[in-house]
C-alpha cells in the first residue's frame, strides 16, 4: 500500500497554510511530522482526511486518486483513521465501549479488543466511564481506538500528548509493531528525541511547505556535538578554524561536521575539546531535535553551507 499526496494546497480564506505539499509514503513506514504549533500539521492531516476543503492537490492510495466526492471520501475513510482528540471522547461511554465502537465500525469484529486493552495496559480503568479518566488515560484510549480500527494508514496527531515516559515507551513500541505489520503511520509529535526511536523519516514543515526531510536510514554526516559556554566557544574559535557547515544551536551547542576532516584532524579536535573540560561531547549525525532547533529555534550556521543543503 502507498499513500501519495501531490501538490496539496490548503488555505483559510487568503492565508495559505499548506502550499504545494508533496509526500509519498510506503508500506511499513512511520513518518514523523514536526513543526511548531500553528504551522499546519493538523491541517495537513485534516486535508488528507478531507475534513477541510483543499484548494489544490491530489490524494492517492495505491495510485488511485480519492477525489472530493462523497463516495471517494467514504472509501478514503475506510483506509485511513484519524487520531481522535482526547477532549472529543464520549464522556458517558466507557473506554472499552470506545474501542469496541471503532472495532465494530471499521472491522465489524470485536475479537481483538481485549488483546488491545491488555497490550496498552488499560485493563484497570477501561471499564469506567471516560469522564473519570486523566489526560494520559484518555490519550492511551485514543491510541487504542485507532489500533482497533486497524486501517492500513493511520494519522496520529499529537499521539504522545499527555503521556508519561513509561507510556511514551509503550506507545513507541506498539508503533514499531504496527510498522512491522505493514501499516503506514504518520505521526506528529513534539517529543522529538522519541521520534528518532521509531520514525523512518521526519518531515519538517515551514512556511507552508515541507522544508526539510530527515531520513534516519540515509548515510548522514557525522558531527561532534558539544556543549560549550561562551568562554569555551571563544577559546575554540580562537584556536581552531571550524569547517563550513558548523551549526550553533541555542548559543551553547555546537555541531561540527567531520566530513572534510582527516582522522588525524578529528583526533586533534577531539583532544582539544576534551582539554577544555566541556560538559558534553557526542559523536553522531544530527537528530530530530537538533534539526528542529536549527530550523525553528535560535541557531546560526557557518557560511557556505545551509542545513537544507546538508540532507537534501
Amino acid at each position: 500500500m502507498s499513500l501519495e499526496v501531490k501538490g496539496l494546497t490548503v488555505s483559510y480564506e487568503d492565508r495559505v497554510v499548506l502550499d504545494n505539499i508533496e509526500l509519498s509514503l510506503e508500506n511499513g513506514q512511520i513518518i514523523g511530522l514536526v513543526a511548531p504549533n500553528g504551522t499546519g500539521k493538523t491541517s495537513l492531516f485534516n486535508a488528507i482526511m478531507r475534513f477541510i476543503p483543499i484548494r489544490a492537490g491530489h490524494i492517492l492510495i495505491d495510485d488511485k486518486e480519492y477525489k472530493d466526492t462523497a463516495k471517494d471520501v467514504l472509501e478514503l475513510h475506510k483506509k485511513i483513521t484519524f487520531f481522535p482528540d482526547q477532549a472529543d471522547l464520549h464522556e458517558n461511554f466507557s473506554g472499552k465501549e470506545h474501542i469496541q465502537m471503532y472495532a465494530d465500525i471499521w472491522k465489524k469484529d470485536k475479537s481483538k479488543v481485549d488483546a488491545i486493552i491488555d497490550r496498552l495496559q488499560m485493563r484497570g480503568y477501561v471499564g469506567r466511564k471516560v469522564e473519570t479518566y486523566s489526560l494520559g488515560m484518555r490519550q492511551r484510549l485514543c491510541f487504542a481506538m485507532v489500533i482497533a480500527a486497524d486501517t492500513p494508514i493511520m494519522l496520529m496527531d499529537e499521539v504522545m500528548n499527555g503521556l508519561d515516559p513509561e507510556n511514551v515507551n509503550l506507545v513507541s513500541k506498539i508503533l514499531q509493531e504496527l510498522k512491522r505489520e505493514g501499516k503506514i503511520i504518520f505521526v506528529s509529535s513534539h517529543l522529538l528525541d522519541n521520534l528518532d526511536e521509531y520514525a523512518d523519516r521526519i518531515l519538517f514543515l515551514k512556511d507552508g511547505g515541507v522544508h526539510f526531510v530527515y531520513d534516519r536510514y540515509e548515510a548522514a554526516e557525522v558531527y561532534y556535538k558539544v556543549l560549550l559556554d561562551t568562554g569555551q566557544q571563544e577559546k575554540l574559535f580562537e584556536k581552531w578554524e571550524l569547517p563550513d557547515g558548523t551549526i550553533r544551536l541555542n548559543q551553547s551547542k555546537l555541531c561540527i561536521p567531520l566530513t572534510n576532516y582527516t582522522n588525524q584532524q578529528e583526533l586533534e579536535l577531539f583532544q582539544f575539546l576534551r582539554g577544555m573540560n566541556i560538559e558534553e561531547l557526542e559523536v553522531g549525525s544530527l537528530g530530530t531535535s537538533e534539526y528542529y532547533t536549527h530550523l525553528y529555534g535560535n541557531s546560526e550556521s557557518k557560511p557556505g553551507r545551509q542545513l537544507n543543503e546538508v540532507k537534501s
Binding site: A70, E75, H77, F82, D88, L89
Partner: peptide, 15 residues
C-alpha cells in the same frame, strides 16, 4: 460540537 474528531472520520456516509 462535543465529539468531532471521534465521529467525523468514520467510514459510514452522512446520508
Amino acid at each position: 460540537k462535543k465529539n468531532w474528531s471521534v465521529t467525523q472520520g468514520i467510514p459510514i456516509s452522512w446520508k
